[in-house]
Each structure stands twice: as structure tokens, then as C-alpha cells.
Computed example of a mutant assay.
Amino acid sequence: MPAPSRRRRRYPSDTTVAEWALIEPLLPVEACRRKTGGRPEKWHRRDVVDAIRYLVDNGAKWRALPSDFPPWSTVYYAFRRWVRAGVVGYIRDQLRRRLRAGGGRCPYPITLIVDSQSVKAAETVGKDSRGYDAGKKINGRKRHLAVDTHGLPVMILVTPADMSDRDAARELLWRLRLAHPQLVQVFADRAYAGQLVGWADDFLDLHLRTVARPKGAKGFVVVPRRWRVERTLSWLMRARRNVRDYERLPEHAEAHLTWSLITVMTRRLARDGQPRTDTWDKKRPAR
């Protein structure tokens, strides 16, 4: 076991004691404590997690991490290892289930909302994983996000920006069906209409329902159901690392997005001691 962390918490992105109590049990067992054995970890995991959160929140480069964090190579190795092992997705799912259960809902959602967002990509993103979104006039990548009726993340998929929402939705919905067999329906905007609706119903036994803007509406309008995923997209953009895509690997881009939402969920759990439910949810039957 590494020595207790002695680094002074000085950044807004640092974990509090309550947040670390939520994250620590969800991390994999250290190699030195397994039957196969391994070297003890030199740096405390809380310092590593704080470094990842700092990088996501402030948009820093890996090599530009402040000196009070572990070496950048150590932090990046842990980040990459946890992505490959599915640890980041596991933490996301466990925190979401705890928030839902605390809000009086079933931990496993049956209704989701999906949407996409195109962002510019830096020169570090290769041509094989980027594209040009003619509609948004953006050269970069597109994020496809599935959230529950609280706006909590369920799955994130990163594709080239020139991939249409319908094509990406086939992959996203297929993964959702495999990972969440209890799903019943998914809400989306009109970009997902057409043959995709019948395909989801026939092959996935999943009801895809499109929600259109009110007729004659101009400018910004709060659209029922869809506003929750749009709010989650705004949460993502609060983290500077997510304003532009810098990652060579799409799965690393997905991990940065997930870490920013993990921070949102841990802060909500730690701040109130129990998950907060919106007034909108109190007027709706539990799903």
C-alpha cells in the first residue's frame, strides 16, 4: 500500500474526502494485493485521480500537469489502463445507480434520451477518426450521448463528425441493448427518424420515439424530454478539455467526457449526502 496522500488539495477539481470515499471502492484491486502479485503502487491513487480530474477540468496537456501531482507518465499510464479495463465506465454506472436509487427510482433505467454534439478537433486527431460535419460546418468529431431521465450518463460514443446521427445510432443502440437489456424506449430528435425507428423496433425490440420542436417556434425552446440530454451536453462543456477534441484515440476522448460527468455525480452525492431530484421529476411517475 502506498503512503497516505499528503498533497494539499488546492484546486477546485480536487476530490473531497466524501468524493474519494465514493470513488476509491470502485477502483480495481492493486496488483500487489492479488494472487498473481505485482509491484506496490508508488503514488497514492487519490493523487492520480485528482490529476486526471485537473487535466479534464482545466484542459491542460499531460506533460503540463503541476508538479504537486504524480509524474505525468504515471497519471497517463493509470488513465490508459483504467480505460482499457473498463474501470471508467464501471465507476460511471455505479454512481448513476446510486443517484437513481437515492432519488427513489429503479437503479436500472428503462427510458433514455439520445443526442449528438459536433466539436472541432485539434491537429493531434488523425484523419482516420475525424470528419467534416457539413451541417454544423465543423471539422472534427461527433459525440453521441445517451442519458437517463435525470440526465445522468449511460453511454458515450465518439465518431468522426461526418458520420450521420442515424448511422452512429445503430452502433449506439446496439451497444445499449447488449449492456442494458431492460431498456424499453429511447427519445431523440427528428434527425433519428426514418428507417432507424423500424430497425430499432424489429431487431432490438426498442421503441425509438422522436420529439420535434413546437411548430412555429423560433430561437431557443425547451423541448420536452430532449432538454435533459442537452443539459448534460452543457455540463460536458464546462470542462475545458471537452471544448475541443485532442485525443488520438476515440476511446480516450470518451473517457475524458466520462470523467467530467463522474465529477458531476460525485459532487452531487457528496454535497447533499443524498441525490437531488429536480422538481420536474417529482411531478413524473417513477421509471
Rank of each mutant, 00 (worst) to 15 (best):
2 P>K: 00
2 P>Y: 03
3 A>K: 07
5 S>A: 04
6 R>G: 07
8 R>L: 11
9 R>A: 06
13 S>A: 08
17 V>P: 02
23 I>M: 00
23 I>C: 01
24 E>C: 02
25 P>T: 02
28 P>T: 05
28 P>I: 04
28 P>K: 00
29 V>P: 04
31 A>L: 08
32 C>P: 01
34 R>Q: 06
35 K>N: 06
35 K>E: 11
36 T>M: 07
38 G>L: 03
39 R>M: 08
40 P>G: 00
41 E>D: 04
43 W>S: 00
43 W>Q: 04
47 D>A: 03
49 V>S: 03
54 Y>G: 02
54 Y>L: 02
59 G>H: 08
61 K>D: 13
62 W>C: 06
63 R>D: 09
66 P>G: 03
69 F>A: 02
71 P>S: 02
71 P>R: 05
72 W>P: 00
73 S>Y: 11
74 T>M: 02
76 Y>P: 01
80 R>I: 11
82 W>C: 11
84 R>A: 13
85 A>H: 04
89 G>V: 09
89 G>H: 04
91 I>T: 02
95 L>Q: 01
96 R>Y: 00
97 R>Q: 15
97 R>I: 05
99 L>F: 05
101 A>W: 06
102 G>R: 00
103 G>Q: 05
103 G>T: 14
106 C>M: 03
107 P>L: 04
108 Y>E: 12
108 Y>V: 14
112 L>S: 05
117 Q>G: 08
124 T>V: 01
125 V>E: 05
127 K>E: 07
127 K>M: 02
128 D>S: 05
129 S>H: 11
129 S>K: 04
133 D>W: 12
133 D>Y: 04
134 A>F: 09
134 A>I: 07
135 G>V: 10
137 K>R: 15
140 G>Y: 14
141 R>I: 01
145 L>I: 02
145 L>N: 10
146 A>D: 01
148 D>I: 05
148 D>C: 06
152 L>D: 13
153 P>S: 08
154 V>N: 11
154 V>R: 05
155 M>D: 12
156 I>K: 09
159 T>I: 00
163 M>P: 02
174 W>P: 01
175 R>G: 15
175 R>E: 13
176 L>D: 09
176 L>H: 11
178 L>Q: 14
178 L>S: 11
183 L>I: 10
185 Q>C: 11
188 A>R: 03
189 D>P: 06
189 D>V: 10
190 R>P: 00
192 Y>S: 09
193 A>T: 03
194 G>C: 10
196 L>E: 06
200 A>K: 14
200 A>P: 12
201 D>W: 15
203 F>Q: 06
206 L>P: 10
208 L>I: 10
209 R>Q: 15
210 T>F: 12
212 A>V: 15
212 A>E: 10
217 A>G: 14
220 F>G: 07
225 R>V: 15
227 W>K: 10
229 V>Y: 08
232 T>S: 15
232 T>Y: 03
233 L>S: 12
235 W>H: 14
237 M>G: 13
237 M>C: 12
240 R>D: 05
240 R>K: 15
241 R>N: 08
242 N>A: 13
242 N>V: 05
246 Y>L: 13
247 E>S: 07
248 R>L: 11
255 A>C: 13
255 A>G: 08
257 L>N: 13
259 W>G: 07
263 T>C: 15
272 D>R: 13
273 G>N: 13
276 R>S: 14
277 T>W: 08
279 T>Q: 08
280 W>F: 09
281 D>T: 15
282 K>E: 14
282 K>V: 13
283 K>P: 03
283 K>G: 15
283 K>D: 15
286 A>S: 14
